[in-house]
Design a protein around this nucleic acid. Structure first.
Lengths: 337, 337
DNA sequence: TTGAAAGCGCTAACAC
DNA sequence: GTGTTAGCGCTTTCAA
């Protein structure tokens, strides 16, 4: 039984191939000029020893790491799970490993996890949800940590997100065409406040552009059962004939709630989601939704991040708005009665 | 504008508080005996400088990292997304950061990502899906990398998974009670081969225990449209009146396919999934499923891993089987006709 | 109770 | 082409 007491180091390789550490380094990195036969000897030694470069040591000396951090609110939300998956893929295409932290939408956890990522010396940070206070953001900026927000927005950092104005415009136009005049927006507690507010606002503006009456009362939020009760009542009294939600996850829960309360979708009420997750495409769900271009969000986000990492440039922040599309499915239909 | 040219180091703190680096180190780590007033001075300096220990340097000198690697096949699969989320939480409770790699079920990618994680010097590895060849596993073992399989199984490494014998036993007993005699097992191409095989085998054994005829032909796999066509035909000819699948994801696609082909679920055919994801709990889906205890899988998996990391003990590998439960919902019903 | 020194494994000048 | 040297920021003996 030959149990290696420790990982072989560059030193071991150098000794075995009878060259200096620098030469081994040049070979592994593929730089500098190394004589073919020397290279072969080194490669041979690497193979027999099973040598693997120690990224920790390299990171220390290079003062940077090949790791990026991704902060997400809720991995159990299909939209974010997919986005994270795509970003990890993009990052690994660029030779980077990804550290992922789930915050459960909890500001304290978020701050702590970002701190941990910075201690680990991540080269950059992608925030897919940012619940926390601006202080954390200000600190990241002050320290010059390359940061990008994806499907999320802040004026002070690079951001790429979908154009919500267009998205809600499409949704409202679609519903108006179906005869709806009373359209309500529903959000939930998990969604980060900034996104919740901006989507609510985009919805309101779209409603006003169509000269529809805004539905009275404060916009309902799906936290516990209570707001849903209010929603069910509103639908019952025909105060609202259509619902647009802050995301697909909420939309599905709204449909669940409405149906269990005896309201038919889309018979009594139409529901439009936001995200365009695969989930909504199931025929049993068949959710009309404002679809975010996930691949492009991930690609552009990683692009922005690496550009920032590689250029080392300070702000100004760059912002990109991508155009969403409306996927019409079975959860929206003509207004009845 | 006061842009710090670089992160403050332990040296800066030492200089400002007029002590040695060692003392600062003792303070940050909370070890050794430091005079209260010295400690205060150091803490003060840390605060004014905004000093954050460099984990990369610490990892290098300590020859270990506070990072674990998690390898998953498909983050877009709700079951794995949830499991990953839970494991990340458990790891961060233990002060560890998590590197997550998605392999898309691709053996080459898997090997490459594991390699990258090892270069990063992860303290341990959790494999939630292992498609690859045993060579990789053998190498991990030979190098003494702490490794655990979660919801996945290999004799040579620590594993925690659900007892499939019990799971399929419950499913088949349930279906038999409903009058079903011809029950087929369907898997898909994304599922790792070992899991696919062991679940198929567990299904077959359960069928035999009930003295049911095994349904003829090779077990169908949901890869392209073709096997589903075979399944639709089997259902049409009443060769099969019930389907048990390798996971919920497959179950849902099977239901989609059957319904779009005009078969009713559970009227013409009952469907039972495996995983017990939240998805199946939606009333529109209402999937009967063999539920895996996710929280416990995650907790036990992380426990096994940290035990292995901290003890530094070599094998033998330890194995745990958790007991699944059957969640009966609307996709299974009495056999008709 | 504190400090000096050695070194983790690697890269990057700069000699030779 | 190849080797020598000097660290990266930190922990860890071991003296003082």
């Amino acid at each position: 039984m030959n149990v290696p007491s420790r990982r072989p180091t560059i030193h071991d390789v150098a000794a075995l191939s009878r060259v200096s550490k620098s030469t081994v380094s040049n070979v592994t990195r593929g730089v500098g000029t190394v004589a073919p036969e020397t290279r072969d000897r080194v490669l041979e030694a690497i193979r027999t020893l099973g040598y693997r470069p120690n990224a920790v040591a390299r990171n220390l000396v290079q003062q940077r790491t090949s790791v990026i951090g991704v902060v997400v609110g809720d991995l159990a939300n299909a939209f974010y799970a997919e986005l994270v998956k795509l970003m990890e893929k993009e990052a690994s295409l660029r030779g980077h490993t990804t550290m992922i932290c789930n915050t459960d939408g909890h500001p304290d956890l978020e701050a702590a996890r970002i701190e941990a990522l910075l201690e680990q010396g991540v080269g950059g940070l992608a925030l897919l949800e940012f619940t926390g206070d601006r202080a954390v953001l200000a600190q990241l900026l002050a320290e010059g940590v390359p940061t990008v927000m994806v499907s999320c927005w802040a004026d002070v950092v690079d951001s790429v997100a979908v154009d919500e104005e267009v998205g809600y415009g499409l949704a409202i136009a679609h519903l108006v065409e179906l005869g709806h005049r009373r359209i309500i927006h529903v959000s939930d507690a998990m969604t980060e406040p900034a996104t919740r507010r901006s989507r609510q606002a985009a919805h309101d503006r779209a409603v006003r552009r169509h000269r529809l009456a805004t539905v009275g009362g404060p916009p309902p939020r799906l936290e516990e059962d209570e707001p849903l009760a209010g929603l069910v009542q509103a639908v019952g009294e025909a105060t609202a004939t259509a619902v647009v939600t802050v995301n697909d996850f909420t939309a599905i829960r709204v449909i669940e709630g409405l149906e269990s309360a005896g309201r038919r979708v889309p018979g009594d009420v139409s529901v439009v989601g936001f995200d365009g997750t695969a989930l909504g495409g199931l025929s049993r769900i068949s959710l009309t939704s404002i679809a975010q271009p996930r691949e492009e969000l991930a690609r552009r986000g990683v692009e922005l991040l690496f550009d920032r990492i590689e250029s080392g440039q300070p702000p100004p922040a760059r912002h990109q708005r991508l155009t969403p599309t409306l996927i019409v499915r079975g959860s929206s239909g003509p207004v009845e009665g």
